[in-house]
Computed example of a mutant assay.
Amino acid sequence: MVTDMQEFDKTGLEVPPGAIANQIQTLLKERYKEGFPIIKEILQNANDAGATRLDMGVTPGLPSTEVEHPLLEQPSLFFVNNGGFRDSDAKAIGWIGIDFNAGNSAKIGKFGLGQKSVFHFCESFFYIAESDQLSEKAQSYRFLTPWADGQPMTPRDKSAVENYLEDILITQNYSNYFVLWLPLRISNQPRALLSKTYDYHTIQQHLPRDLDRRISTLIPCLNSLQSIYYWVFSALLG
């Protein structure tokens, strides 16, 4: 995870990447189950952001000729909502070990510990945020990983993801959007937080078969989110 060096300047302490990986492993084993609880957390985050729509789907990955980051070529889960994203969100999404939701009923800190449940599916993730609530100094796109040798998301990578999701972003004419892109944990990775691996087909088997029913029972409890769409690969082909 990228850390805030200004905070380190105040304390004089640092957390090595290995310790971050251990924290995530403990969090996944003791606090967050796989499957629907992860989807539920993402739905809640979208609702907290004031989103009215959430799109989710599975992709076999982007062409190597279009991206610089190799993880974008892997089969992935993606989520897109039309909610806001603030500077505090850009900071909170990269923290481990602090629940930013604790004692805070506002939208600030919606990316607390629960967001880290996505590591059940992946070793690292990307996000892209387009928001009128985000200052120029905040990071609007980013690659986050607990491992020390991660490479950043480039402008070319950002454009490739946005082009792939054009049917969602353009046709809906979003002024605000947040994209969460999860490269699935595959079998030949040199190290892993968990042993379970996925591909384009098996990830769909690990999602609940009654996903639509479970989501429909949550919608009445959400004060902002009104519609949720599931995309398949063929629907996103240009």
Score class of each variant (00 low, 15 high):
residue 57 G to D: 10
residue 71 L to G: 09
residue 140 S to D: 00
residue 72 L to W: 08
residue 147 W to C: 07
residue 207 L to S: 09
residue 168 I to S: 14
residue 145 T to G: 06
residue 118 V to C: 03
residue 225 L to S: 02
residue 166 E to P: 01
residue 112 G to C: 11
residue 76 S to T: 12
residue 100 F to L: 08
residue 45 N to D: 06
residue 196 K to E: 15
residue 163 N to F: 04
residue 235 A to H: 08
residue 229 Y to L: 13
residue 5 M to D: 07
residue 198 Y to N: 09
residue 175 S to R: 13
residue 199 D to W: 05
residue 166 E to A: 14
residue 11 T to V: 08
residue 94 G to C: 04
residue 177 Y to W: 01
residue 199 D to P: 05
residue 89 D to L: 00
residue 118 V to D: 03
residue 234 S to P: 02
residue 137 K to C: 00
residue 127 Y to D: 01
residue 210 D to A: 08
residue 64 S to V: 14
residue 42 I to R: 09
residue 32 Y to S: 12
residue 19 A to D: 12
residue 24 I to G: 10
residue 131 S to L: 01
residue 73 E to N: 13
residue 226 Q to P: 03
residue 151 Q to P: 01
residue 222 L to W: 03
residue 89 D to E: 05
residue 59 T to D: 14
residue 2 V to W: 01
residue 198 Y to M: 09
residue 197 T to Y: 10
residue 238 G to A: 15
residue 103 G to T: 11
residue 10 K to T: 14
residue 188 N to R: 10
residue 188 N to P: 01
residue 213 R to Y: 10
residue 6 Q to L: 13
residue 175 S to A: 14
residue 76 S to H: 09
residue 1 M to E: 06
residue 161 V to I: 15
residue 139 Q to S: 07
residue 148 A to G: 06
residue 62 L to C: 12
residue 2 V to C: 01
residue 196 K to F: 04
residue 149 D to Y: 12
residue 30 E to A: 12
residue 171 T to N: 14
residue 204 Q to D: 10
residue 65 T to W: 03
residue 168 I to K: 13
residue 15 V to Y: 03
residue 113 L to N: 13
residue 165 L to M: 13
residue 14 E to Y: 13
residue 134 L to Q: 00
residue 49 A to P: 05
residue 207 L to V: 06
residue 46 A to K: 09
residue 85 F to P: 00
residue 151 Q to M: 11
residue 1 M to S: 13
residue 73 E to H: 09
residue 29 K to M: 12
residue 83 G to V: 02
residue 164 Y to N: 10
residue 15 V to T: 13
residue 117 S to A: 15
residue 194 L to Y: 07
residue 124 S to I: 06
residue 178 F to G: 01
residue 182 L to H: 06
residue 33 K to I: 06
residue 55 D to N: 13
residue 203 I to H: 07
residue 91 K to D: 02
residue 43 L to C: 12
residue 122 C to N: 14
residue 238 G to E: 15
residue 90 A to D: 02
residue 66 E to S: 15
residue 227 S to Q: 15
residue 236 L to I: 11
residue 181 W to G: 12
residue 54 L to C: 11
residue 186 I to H: 09
residue 35 G to M: 06
residue 60 P to N: 12
residue 43 L to P: 02
residue 235 A to S: 11
residue 91 K to T: 02
residue 191 R to N: 10
residue 7 E to I: 11
residue 124 S to D: 14
residue 100 F to E: 05
residue 213 R to D: 12
residue 219 I to K: 10
residue 57 G to P: 05
residue 32 Y to R: 10
residue 228 I to M: 06
residue 232 V to C: 07
residue 41 E to S: 15
